[in-house]
Write a protein that binds this DNA or RNA. Sequence first.
DNA 1: CCATGTCGTTGTACGGTCGAACCATGATGG
DNA 2: CCATCATGGTTCGACCGTACAACGACATGG
Lengths: 132, 132
Amino acid sequence: MVRFVRAFGLHQPDQTPCGQPVPVSEAHALGELARDGALRQHDLAHRLRLEKSTTSRLVTQLIKRGWAERIPAHGDGRGVLVRLTPDGANAAARLAEARALRFSAILDRVPPGERANVLHALELLANATEHP
Amino acid sequence: MVRFVRAFGLHQPDQTPCGQPVPVSEAHALGELARDGALRQHDLAHRLRLEKSTTSRLVTQLIKRGWAERIPAHGDGRGVLVRLTPDGANAAARLAEARALRFSAILDRVPPGERANVLHALELLANATEHP
DNA sequence: CCATGTCGTTGTACGGTCGAACCATGATGG
DNA sequence: CCATCATGGTTCGACCGTACAACGACATGG
């Protein structure tokens, strides 16, 4: 597992392991927002497993790039909703594509008979890791 | 895979995903040094997939903690060898133990019949990712 | 002996995270 | 109704982690 983490390039903060020139934390946020539409900042923090302070800055970054916007949360004067702009949705789509490409390139190097197996195992592993 | 990365806690820079209060990059370095003995700084950089400047700073940190020392590389006046001190070897052993514990805790949450399978798949995946 | 390449260090810049202090707003209860 | 407490966000300071560029020290080959 240690080997995999290192080889996968997860310690390069300024680009995704898939080669896109997007800071990795922003890529995660884009993914969540693209999948689920507008989110409360609080929810976004929960999904990314980040503190609210970190998330606040992260959203500010996204806005600075023109990828997201804050809208007042209706019904609660404190909160805000974070929503992707069209540009942000585009960026998210590009990232998803690059990710799919990278993954399929890796999978191509797995012996054909084992591929389904590897995917299944990864699923189990993610499950086992998620629920503490 | 994205799910796994996030759940595993790899974006927490000041502690290993295994809960040890050791900066994660130092943990990687300790692992390599413990496994292979003294290393040229250049080699260490190569294994960790880091730049030489980053590695230099990393080694300086390890020395500041009393975990490593630089010795002149015999036969080459430029280079240095990095070697763990006894304290460093201890720290590396503690980390290895914590890692084993964390991994086995995750594995415990995988259905028993699938465990061998998951381990085998992880091996294949690391291989596929390592060789570009 | 000098040009060129290699190993390492230092400076600068940026990405990434946290905890604590703070403010505004909601919720609760006497 | 208002005092009190809880919740969502922001800002501040601190630290970890990385790269690139410029530099010095040494090695090597002509």
